[in-house]
Design a protein around this nucleic acid. Structure first.
Length: 423
RNA sequence: GUGGACGUAGCUCAGCUGGUAGAGCCCCGGAUUGUGAUUCCGGCCGUCGUGGGUUCGAGCCCCAUCGUCCACCCCA
């Protein structure tokens, strides 16, 4: 035997036992998207590295140290997408979707970031992603958030809390950044090494620090919400009203800043205390400047991304149930002629009764062994086929959840099974 | 990227101060003829993550490496 090829760090296989959770999440989110008029878009996993650098920001952690980028055979720099927004904006521009149009879009798929893996944090991870283009008012901000609240409800998820904030316009944020830098410079010696490093580059990130020694210092720092431009303040106030009338509870977290440079005005994050340090399950915000930054016509835009692994972990943590796939009918058969006839019979039942789930035992072994498998499969009914049955042209039908075993002619079998299952 | 814990059969784990591997579950077969519980009997399954080193001898010690998990970091 040759040696095993090991899987890559942070790359997971979703095995059949896990797949139903993924299907549940995907079908619920698709369902909700469709009831809100969001349409699916699918974009490539691979883009020019330049796209992400320009969109997310040259000096963000994602671009600086987490992106899987490499040169192709022609020497151009490509990257596996670390998030979906940049690609969707690029696709919208490439395909002329933003010319006097409005679009509500969603996509579902894998993203890639070369971080050190932990529970709820992987190198290939999946996101459900929503984006709305062409809507400048706070109503769409509210709609996007209401939509996520509905998803939680339908998925049976509790223990998530909504935090919101406004970053204001780029100009207002630049003024605030200067103010903040000035404040922290005055207390330079109290900053930890990370924060000292961030002071010049991105002082807003200091507000996010979990370092308890700096908590007081941070609490006393000037608040962005006090230094917003008037329009952003009005936008934010209106959003809060809309959330209240929509029945979605929130807390304003003035220190909520995002690690991607393109956000402006509304930012929000759904957090949980059930997953350890990976506490963000869904987050997003407005990015009114990004489209022009990527060369398109000025278009207001907003979106969010949901971490699928985290949501699934959360569902499991909270004891949510997901239906397991099990056959309705299990065909037990022994003997060469019975095997051939059984296969044929299963086909004809599937044709006559579409939707009926029929699993055949092709594993051989004694009737006893096959019945054990039939039981374990969760099937409601076993169809038994041996040489006797084949000779008589009828199958033995045994209810596995109590009831008498009967014999049914091959011709009447499909209808008989449908009747048994539906009761 | 930094610090730490861990890595033994498909799964959950045991393995004393180094003497060349064990349990339960699972799976397979049997307890008289073709029928799923339980019980009983029997059986299969391991390059002890990988590669080096120390030693007469290593799952147990040392080094490296890969992976998982936790915290930081970052973020979905």
């Amino acid at each position: 035997m040759s040696e095993h090829i090991e899987p890559l760090r942070g790359m997971n296989d979703v095995l059949p036992d896990e797949a139903p959770w993924w299907n549940r999440l995907e079908s619920v989110t698709r369902e909700v998207f469709s009831t809100y008029g969001y349409r699916e878009i699918r974009v490539p996993l691979l883009e020019r590295t330049q796209l992400f650098k320009r969109a997310i920001g040259e000096h963000t952690d994602i671009v600086e140290k987490e992106m899987f980028s490499f040169e192709d055979r022609d020497g151009q720099s490509l990257a596996l997408r670390p998030e979906a927004t940049a690609s969707i904006v690029r696709a919208a521009i490439s395909n002329g979707l933003l010319h006097n149009q409005k679009h509500r879009l969603f996509t579902i798929g894998p993203m890639f970031r070369g971080e050190r893996p932990q529970k709820g944090r992987y190198r290939q991870f999946y996101q459900v992603d929503a984006e709305a283009f062409g809507y400048s008012g706070p109503e769409v901000d509210a709609e996007l958030i209401l939509m996520t609240a509905r998803m939680w409800q339908l998925l049976g998820i509790s223990r998530v809390r909504l935090e919101i904030n406004s970053l204001g316009t780029a100009e207002a944020r630049a003024r605030y950044r200067d103010l903040l830098r000035e404040y922290f410079r005055g207390h330079y010696s109290q900053l930890d090494a990370d924060s000292q490093r961030r002071l010049e580059g991105n002082p807003l990130r200091i507000l996010d620090s979990k370092n308890a020694d700096m908590a007081q210092l941070i609490a006393a720092a000037p608040l962005l919400t006090d230094h917003l431009d008037d329009e952003s303040t009005a936008h934010f106030e209106r959003l809060k009203k809309l959330l209240e009338s929509g029945g979605v509870a929130y807390t304003v977290n003035p220190r909520l800043v995002r690690g991607l440079d393109y956000y402006s005005r509304t930012v929000f994050e759904w957090v949980t205390d059930a997953l350890g340090s990976q506490n963000a399950v869904c987050s997003g915000g407005r990015y009114d400047g990004l489209v022009t930054q990527l060369g398109g016509e000025a278009t207001p835009a907003i979106g969010w991304a949901m971490g699928m692994e985290r949501v699934i972990l959360l569902m499991q943590e909270l004891g949510c149930q997901v239906p397991v796939e099990q056959p309705d009918v299990y065909v037990v058969m022994a003997g060469e002629s019975a095997l051939a006839r059984g296969l044929q019979l299963a086909e004809s039942i599937r044709t006559a009764a579409p939707g009926l789930k029929i699993e055949t035992d092709l594993g051989g072994g004694s009737f006893k062994a096959q019945f054990k498998r039939a039981d374990k499969s969760g099937a409601h009914v076993a169809v038994v086929l041996g040489d006797d049955e084949v000779a008589r042209g009828e199958a033995s039908v045994k209810p596995l959840r109590g009831g008498e075993q009967t014999t049914v002619s091959f011709d009447a079998l499909a209808a008989h099974l449908v009747a048994m299952i539906s009761k």
